[in-house]
Amino acid sequence: MNPMKQLVESTKTSSPRKRGSSNSPIPNSLDFRLCGNDWLTRNLLFSIVLLLLVITAPPLPAAVTLESFTFPTPAEEQHFKDVIGQLRCLVCQNETLADSDADLAHDLRAEVYEMMKSGKSDKEVIDFLVNRYGDFVLYNPPVKPSTYLIWYGPFVLLAIAVLLLIRAVGRQRQVQEPEISAEERKRLERLLGDNAGKGKQG
């Protein structure tokens, strides 16, 4: 089968994909039960990083679908877009529920619309889907111990790298510059003298 057909067929979609999604939810289930007596420091460090993660969430424009869902107010329409922007399409797995054109995405969007229209809260809608499809249906992985690797990993790497940098710069400062012997010094002067008339290099 034509491998590039995968681009179109494997996802059972009919139109090209789209991107864009909204804010991820502020994690609300962080477990701070740490062992050891330095829990305060680690707690603080975790909180700082978490804060950094939260405040740096650039608000991305929520993607819109092409169905004609009707909403009483623009705020409610934005609310709907925000919620479907947080969910993943299980067929086109790199797309949000808002962007995907897969059949299942159409169905799930209709489902979410009905639930929101009947007054269900965001949490109820998300729980509904997570109960049926698992955490994978959340576009942003939840922040829980098993996902610390991806949420805190980069910062841990940065810390390690900075430490290594400081050590490397510090270590090489202790390296003695090699002394040149008298013979080498004479050779150096001869070379510099020879090159005096040849102009500077770039």
Partner: peptide
């Protein structure tokens, strides 16, 4: 026919 029950079973394909 509409896949509604499928959603309850977590069907995605």
């Amino acid at each position: 026919s509409d896949g509604r029950v499928g959603i309850d079973w977590g069907v995605y394909g």
